[in-house]
Computed example of a mutant assay.
Amino acid sequence: MAEKLNVELREDFGKGASRRLRAQSRVPAVLYGHGEDPIHLSLPGHETALAARNPNALLELELAGGEKHLALIKEIQRHPLKRSLNHLDLITVRKGEKVEVEIPVVLIGEPVAPSAAFVDLQTLTLSVDALNVPEQVEVSVEGAEDGYQLFAGDVTLPGDSELVTDAEILVVSVALPRVEEEPAEGEAAEGETAEGESTEESAEEE
């Protein structure tokens, strides 16, 4: 279901105009797509921030005159410290249209102990229905043992999604946790003695 946002056309541009908008708790944005001229918009800050928590959220943008656009978030620019929204790039989508999106990989289940599961590829690029973008790709590691590997081409995709990512790329692996070995007490003592002797020898030579 689309997130509905009441938006306004933006007539002032530049860094100063953008700062003034953000001071009013609004977010500057640009809507692209289908060969049309870009539309510069002002979005409500709080509602947009909530919608942007899902980077692939479908947005229904409604202008004051009743004109509506369906859009997906293409790129989010955030404040480097506050992490608040600085600017959004949006793309227009239509019913029946396919779009390529990055979908996060999420593990479910537990491997056989003491093995641990590792996500080697955080997202998969999928071609999906623009109006039905999945939030995540679930990969089960229930009962998987050390040495288990799952490649992109073997992942079960949601709905009628199509894989764009290279099918040979490793997505998930299961392995025993690495344990760093500490040097034995005897070895440490020998090393210290050898170091001490070499120091004394140097002193004698001087």
Rank of each mutant, 00 (worst) to 15 (best):
G33F: 15
Q77S: 15
F118R: 00
V93T: 02
S115Q: 03
G159N: 09
I76N: 05
T165F: 15
L63A: 04
V101H: 01
E145L: 06
G96K: 01
N132R: 05
I73T: 04
I108H: 00
E204M: 08
G143C: 09
Y32E: 09
P177I: 12
I103T: 03
A116W: 01
T165M: 13
E145F: 10
I91D: 05
E185N: 04
E168G: 15
E8M: 08
E11N: 11
E168F: 05
A71Y: 09
E3R: 04
G16F: 08
R83Q: 12
V119S: 06
V155C: 07
V155E: 06
A52Y: 15
D37P: 10
R83H: 11
Q149I: 06
T199Y: 06
E145K: 08
S161K: 02
D166W: 07
Y32H: 03
K95Y: 08
V119H: 02
A23F: 06
V179C: 05
T123L: 03
V7G: 01
R53N: 12
Q24T: 05
P111Q: 08
V139T: 08
A130Q: 03
G153L: 11
E75K: 11
A51R: 00
E67L: 06
K98V: 05
R26L: 14
D154R: 10
E200H: 00
P44G: 09
F151L: 13
A203L: 12
F151V: 13
L126R: 04
S161A: 15
A51E: 12
T125W: 06
V106S: 02
E97R: 00
A188K: 08
L59Q: 07
V137C: 13
A203R: 10
T92N: 04
G186D: 15
Q136A: 11
A184T: 08
V179N: 02
L131A: 02
K95V: 09
N132C: 07
T193Q: 11
E197N: 05
R178S: 13
A194H: 08
P111C: 14
G186Y: 14
A175K: 04
R178Q: 14
D160I: 08
L81W: 06
E60I: 08
T123F: 13
M1K: 07
P177K: 04
E8F: 10
G143Q: 00
D129K: 01
I76Q: 07
L124G: 02
E62K: 09
E142V: 00
Q122L: 14
G35P: 04
A71P: 01
L63H: 02
